[in-house]
Nucleic acid binder design. Structure first.
Length: 474
DNA sequence: TCCAAGTCAATATG
DNA sequence: CATATTGACTTGGA
């Protein structure tokens, strides 16, 4: 196998900020992203005759694999070093809102897992990094913005002519009638901590709940069905993302040093599936950990501790994940311990102080673990299902290995490769952070993996019914 | 239809 | 002020 690196030429493309032809179809006030200045002098390569420039999308299509993690890392550096905000950067360079930028920078997905659309921002970032005047331009924008802002408030002694007058004084005198006319603000649902906990618990038992289950959850939690559905979609996808970043970080530390030794072969064993912590290797068993009193872990949560029941509920995180066959039973109805909160009445404020353990209330404490089910009829046992689940195989696409080259620790910026045009992409992404990845093996990881496994299982089952040689890549 | 991926935009936090 | 989080919406695939 030889990996060819012919990508080089593409690189050059990536470096040119061409005036995009943007096909902005939306009528938003959106600005065209790139500033009109597309200098890009460079001695230009582009042997292509006639072609003017490629649109970003075309660029994305031909772009070689980029190191998303490295890119975001550099972007963050440049931004903070120069006091440039995400909002400005996002709106000006990427055409995204602040929240999206934050998310992207904090949790970049690996290139090969991104869709064409998802790659676009990374290509733009790379382009921006290659632009020698990037910072300067952004600074200018910032100044202009500020100026405009100042001017605005100055001119009008007391604010005025905002674009959107009106609609300010919301008189909600009689809140009862839902006026059909104007839709009000739409109050953005905010799930209470208990609700999230309950949902997470449900997720661990069933990442892909049936419509029926969803209904039940919605009813029990007193939420809209769509909210529950959305929550599951979001949660699944966010968990997946977490796994990606772990994958990236874990993968990066491989080589040490000096020798070039590109080999990576061993890696396969490592990150491949992982889904299993099986492997035996595992070391450290005892999860004690206990880092700080509170778990910050988002996506995991306490999880069930199974103490008693058979059912197998979810896997325990504390221990090694059983990799055998864990079946996903189909308990259709379980009920979380939330009854308490459904008092309804409309009132909704059940604020829960985090981790309060009011003496006496059965609810909270129990809620956490529990193996609910039972309760009423319906023996859940029923199906054992256990279809033999995969073995630990890991199918991986061998394909490109993506090994990074060693890196330069140089802190600063810029790389400037400036002078040379030689930049091959590789140089662009040159360093893959060597940064060290600490060990992240907390049980957090395990929990996530466990959840992911569940997810995988679900997909496998689904696929099983349709026979298809799917290529999974967990 | 369901799902995943990408975003937005309101809110939370710092 | 900035950045981080997150419910909901949009798109595109099957």
């Amino acid at each position: 196998m030889s990996s060819s690196e012919s990508v080089k030429s593409l690189t050059e493309l990536v470096q040119q900020p061409c005036p995009a032809i943007e096909t902005s179809k939306d009528g938003k006030p959106q600005e065209s992203s790139e500033p009109p200045v597309s200098e890009s002098q460079s001695t230009t390569p582009l042997p292509l005759s006639g072609q003017s420039a490629l649109s970003i999308q075309e660029l994305v299509a031909v772009s070689p694999e980029l190191d998303t993690y490295g890119i975001t890392k550099r972007v963050k550096e440049v931004l903070t070093d120069n006091n440039l905000g995400q909002r400005l950067f996002g709106e000006t360079i990427l055409g995204l809102t602040q929240g999206s930028v934050s998310d992207l920078l904090a949790r970049p997905k690996p290139w090969h897992k991104l869709s064409l659309k998802g790659r676009e921002p990374f290509v733009r970032m790379q382009l921006w990094l290659n632009d020698p005047n990037n910072v300067e331009k952004l600074m200018d924008m910032k100044r202009m913005e500020k100026k405009a802002y100042m001017k605005r408030r100055h001119s009008s002694v007391s604010d005025s002519q905002p674009c959107e007058p009106s609609s300010v004084g919301i008189d909600y005198s009689q809140g009862a009638s839902p006026q059909p006319q104007h839709q009000l603000k739409k109050p953005r649902v905010v799930l209470a901590p208990e609700e999230k906990e309950a949902l997470k618990r449900a997720y661990q038992q069933k990442p892909y709940p049936s419509p029926k289950t969803i209904e039940e959850l919605a009813t029990q939690l007193n939420l809209k069905t769509s909210t529950v559905i959305n929550w599951f979609h979001n949660y699944r996808s966010r968990i997946r993302r977490e796994l990606f970043i772990e994958e990236i970080q874990a993968g990066s530390q491989s080589q040490a040093g000096s020798s070039d030794s590109p080999s990576a072969r061993s890696s396969r064993a490592v990150h491949s599936s992982e889904g299993d912590s099986c492997d035996g290797v595992d070391t450290e068993g005892p999860p004690e950990g206990k880092q700080s009193g509170l778990e910050a872990d988002e996506y995991s949560n306490a999880t069930t501790k199974s103490q008693g029941g058979q059912a197998e509920s979810a896997f325990e995180v504390g221990e090694e994940v059983p990799q055998d066959a864990r079946s996903s039973e189909k308990t259709e109805s379980f009920h979380l311990g939330m009854e308490s909160l459904e008092d309804t009445d409309d009132e909704g404020r059940l604020k829960a102080p985090r981790q309060s353990s009011p003496p006496g209330s059965q609810s909270s404490g129990e809620t956490l673990e529990t193996m609910p089910n039972s309760a009423t009829e319906e023996d859940a046992s029923t199906s054992a299902a256990s279809t033999s689940v995969l073995t630990g195989e890991s199918s991986f696409k061998s394909k490109e290995s993506s090994e990074k080259m060693l890196s330069v620790p140089s802190t600063s910026s810029t790389l400037a490769a400036g002078s040379q045009k030689a930049n091959s992409i590789q140089s662009l992404f040159s360093f893959s952070e060597a940064a060290s990845s600490k060990n992240t093996r907390d049980n957090t990881l395990r929990k996530k993996k466990a959840a992911n496994l569940n997810n995988i299982i679900h997909r496998l089952e689904k696929a099983a019914s349709r026979e298809e040689p799917v290529e999974w890549e967990f």
